[in-house]
Design a protein around this nucleic acid. Sequence first.
DNA 1: AGCCAGGCTAAGA
DNA 2: TCTTAGCATGGC
Length: 297
Amino acid sequence: MLVANPTGQINVEDFDLAATLRSGQAFRWHDLAGGGFVGVIGDRVWRVKQDGNVLTWQTVPAGNPAFLENAARHYFGLDVELKHVVSTFPQDDAALQAAVRRHWGLRILRQEPWECLASFMASATKQIVQIRQIIELLTRRHGDRLTTRWGEFYSFPSTATVAGLTERELRDCKLGFRAPNLLKAARMARDGVVNLDQLPGKSHEEALCELMRLPGVGEKIGNCVLLFGCGFDNAFPVDVWVARALCRLYFGGDNKAGIRKARAFASRHFGPYAGWAQQYLFCDERRRDRDERIKRS
DNA sequence: AGCCAGGCTAAGA
DNA sequence: TCTTAGCATGGC
């Protein structure tokens, strides 16, 4: 008979687990009946649930509780004071402030750089449901199996594992024209041609240039990796949603203002936690779109 | 049926 | 320096 894994608890403030995990930063957390979530961080399966100011967690396999609690704090961005982040935002920006209120507790996750890179390489011109499907196939076929009483899960395949696959095997994970790029990027990362672990020590500009040496990685994907996987809180990825929000809010609805202009503006306007501001705008623009659809139907 | 999706790249103005 | 077509594929 299975012995229940030890359960850990963390007191949290200004944190919304569901808003964070559903915000399109990470692609393989699953809802559990009862309000919790299950997903994989590194080589462990985590079950997490928030009740008010308490975050409860369990892992498979089990491990040193202090170490795991630290890992959770790091991953969920709990070592950042959200009120401080928000205090750095432009105070006269009513739209941003409203977005922050509507998604209060949403935090930037600290993911593994490689998983983050591969995930966002897969994201190019894909909808979030499709990205989840690609990642699911990639992990199920090429990751290590982790069996739990919540189901079977898979670790994310390493750079060496992906580098050893064929383009055909990657295409079979529905990667399409992204397959050869991911294969080359995995080989470059494995061989240290681009060292993902050294990115956090570099300047933002230097780290971005380094990532953009990888085929299939431009400014958008590069900044996603820096923000979600390397701790660059100021990295500001501009995708179609954020571009739409910026055009509407700051360029008088001019949808032709262009992504380049939007990037230049954002780097001046939002400050040291621009990436967090980006995530609030991203989520709020998508919420707005959903509301409009419902109203029309 | 047709449009668009958390883009990148090479080519041409 | 800025704009555009093409890239695979699936959801709506």
